[in-house]
């Protein structure tokens, strides 16, 4: 048994929230650069502006995007780990400290719209695994793109074709609104709620990576090709790049169903990971 003081978790969450908000992932930057070469006119101007933005963010120590998001904190925790203290409270304290001065507080009551004032609570998800590792992945999720996400309860008969149509249809309907070029996280299978989680988890995969299963990777590739044929383009200005990547995650589901969740992420992919 390995004992982990939750103070370590608080510190890690603080570091990850700071790091994530001030830079893009390397894979995201590379994908944007290569997309820029394929575009012209206003679409190229949009991608040039976005790449210049990250340089300014780092030079001026400003968050890359003002929507510093809802903190989605995904844990993978070894079964031999014992947390000493209140894990949820520690995560929220890490978020509170990270957002205190210069990051936007974007969390509010859904009905009164009263801001909680410190960007908490974070959205926490924990998966168990073998061993005694603690992996933390923090994704500050903007809602311009989150708002464009959808879940479909397909029938088994709709199958692979239905899955691809659900993914492409969601991006088509989102149009210019979620800050394309988008990254698309897809959950396939599981339950209604579990499927949505898989879609979120898929967004933490490196841009351009393919699922190890060939039949899943082929769905990712076909969906990406069809999305980029839509012509929505960067910021919706028209062009060849509407999505940078499609990533699918799978779980076994019920014999009667085929849940498909499509979680949209803007081009501003900020995701930071750490292993304790």
């Amino acid at each position: 048994m390995r004992t982990v003081d939750v103070k370590q978790i608080e510190e890690a969450v603080f570091r990850l929230a700071r790091r994530a908000n001030f830079s893009l992932t390397d894979a995201c930057r590379a994908a944007l650069k290569s997309a820029k070469e394929r575009e012209d006119g206003a679409a190229r101007f949009a991608l040039e502006t976005v790449l210049e933005n990250e340089k300014i963010a780092q030079r001026e120590e400003l968050p890359v995007c003002q929507d510093t998001g809802m903190c989605c904190v995904l844990f993978t925790v070894g079964r031999e780990v014992h947390f000493e203290g209140d894990l949820t409270a520690a995560v929220n304290e890490g978020v509170r400290r990270a957002y205190r001065d210069d990051l936007r507080k974007s969390i509010c009551d859904p009905l009164t719209r009263l801001n909680t004032g410190d960007n908490t609570p974070a959205h926490i998800h924990i998966e168990l695994c073998a061993g005694d590792r603690v992996e933390i992945c923090l994704l500050p999720k903007g809602f311009g793109s989150e708002n464009m996400s959808k879940i479909f309860m397909l029938t088994p008969a709709e199958g692979r074709k239905g899955i691809v149509e659900s993914i492409v249809g969601t991006v088509r309907l989102a149009g210019s609104r979620p800050c394309p070029p988008v990254v698309v996280g897809v959950g396939i299978g599981g339950s209604f709620d579990g499927c949505a989680y898989l879609a979120k988890k898929a967004l933490t995969r490196e841009i351009g990576s393919r699922h190890p299963r060939a039949d899943v990777a082929s769905i990712e590739e076909e969906a990406l090709e069809k999305i980029n044929a839509l012509g929505i383009g960067p910021q919706g200005f028209g062009g060849r790049t509407t999505a940078l990547s499609v990533a699918c995650e799978l779980a076994p589901t019920h014999i009667a169903g085929l849940p498909v969740a499509v979680n949209i992420q803007c081009h501003c992919v900020r995701c930071a990971k750490e292993v304790l």
């Binding site: 502006t49 933005n53 001026e60 003002q66 507080k105």
Partner: peptide, 27 residues
């Protein structure tokens, strides 16, 4: 249309910022 996701670039081009109304709404 401003370019979404370029918050730092636009922030860097703001010469002054003053709250005019609704301080309880924060951002």
């Amino acid at each position: 249309a401003a370019i979404g996701g370029a918050g730092a670039l636009y922030g860097n081009a703001v010469r002054s910022s003053e709250l005019v109304a609704y301080p309880d709404l924060l951002a």
